[in-house]
Nucleic acid binder design. Structure first.
Lengths: 196, 196
DNA sequence: CTGAATGTATACCGATCTGTCTACTTGCTT
DNA sequence: AAGCAAGTAGACAGATCGGTATACATTCAG
């Protein structure tokens, strides 16, 4: 194992450890010492890679953004394009909520919604990073909505986003394992009404 | 001003001050000292009324639960029963999001969703208190859904809840002032399909 | 060979955290 | 009149916070 590999490994180790802790316990509730202990890394090493806790938070959000979008994109592309792809989103959510897909386990709600709950001001740096993530996911749905109804793709995708967010909140807050399927039921009817 | 009044006033003052701070900055981010400074109360007084910060949090959640449900109930009862009452929910949300109703200002997302984001474990005491609140609001919608379609009231109310939660998240995370109206549009179509 | 980069461990800094304590005041109730 | 409940201000305790400093080890590149 080369030094260059070690460099990256430590950095990534810190980010993925920080993510797991932030995601489970919340950002404010997790201290820097807890992160370095769990990562098995010296404090100096953390502050070598990141200027501050704020910088670590930003890196953690970027890490999850990548992980989540790559995962969802892959799940959608497993089915033929069109309405089916949009419904596949809810099947993906179902597996996420019920922790049936190792690639995205465990489930503690949406990390970005949770982060906005800790930084409620929309002007806050972290809040805005969450907005960017949500916007990118929305655009992903929009691309597939075009295949269903190009003229009304904006409206369709936006309405599906509402159902998606509602399902995530319901699954987490109410610990409802069927949330994704309920949302999928509504999405189906919605899709029908958009498929002229 | 009698002493007996003063007693209750101090307690309520602490709760409403704590709520404002917790709601705006998050629970973990707000310290006990910050609460007593803002409330203009001695630390001893806080610990006279509450055993711990945990107890203050519980009281804060109960306070908001009451405030919110009384507010929403009042908003719904301003219109004749039936489908209109269910749509009135989204008009109420619209005023909440855009801070047009003094009774429920300001808007920093849903305090209960935010709290669940800080206490992600559904077994956590505070998380469960949030579940209870959401269940009570759901039952409120259910009662009105009965007027629309008694046989399928469960399904209808559940789907409206999803739209409601989705709208709250969208309004907060994306700072989208129109979220409630988008959700209302979907709710309208949903209601039509349930009004045989 | 040497120096820069990256890593280790650990002590330390000042600030803040929740919660307790002392000492005193006020005012209602019995 | 006496006692109790509720209030004040503020010191204090012990832990933890984010972040820095010191001293040293390893490894790769010029």
């Amino acid at each position: 194992m080369s030094q260059a590999n070690n460099r990256l490994e430590k950095r990534d180790q810190l980010i993925s450890t920080a993510f797991s802790l932030f995601y489970r316990y919340g950002i404010h509730a997790v201290g820097i010492n807890q992160v370095i202990d769990a990562a098995g890394v010296a404090k100096r090493t953390l502050y070598h890679h990141f200027d501050s806790k704020e910088a670590l938070i930003a890196a953690t959000l970027a890490y999850r953004d990548q992980q989540f979008r790559i995962w969802l994109e892959a799940r959608i592309e497993q089915v033929p394009p069109g309405g089916g792809a949009l419904l596949a989103v809810f099947d993906a959510l179902d597996d996420w909520f019920n922790e049936r897909d190792e690639a995205i386990m465990p489930f503690h709600g949406c990390f970005f919604i949770n982060t906005c709950a800790e930084y409620t001001d929309p002007q806050n740096v972290h809040h805005q990073q969450c907005q960017t993530h949500k916007r990118l996911v929305h655009e992903m749905l929009l691309r597939h909505a075009y295949q269903v109804n190009a003229e009304r793709a904006d409206a369709l995708s936006q309405e599906l986003v509402f159902l998606k967010e509602g399902a995530i909140v319901q699954a987490h807050v109410m610990a409802d394992p069927q949330a994704a399927l309920v949302a999928k039921g509504v999405a189906k009817r919605l899709l029908q009404s958009y498929t002229t």
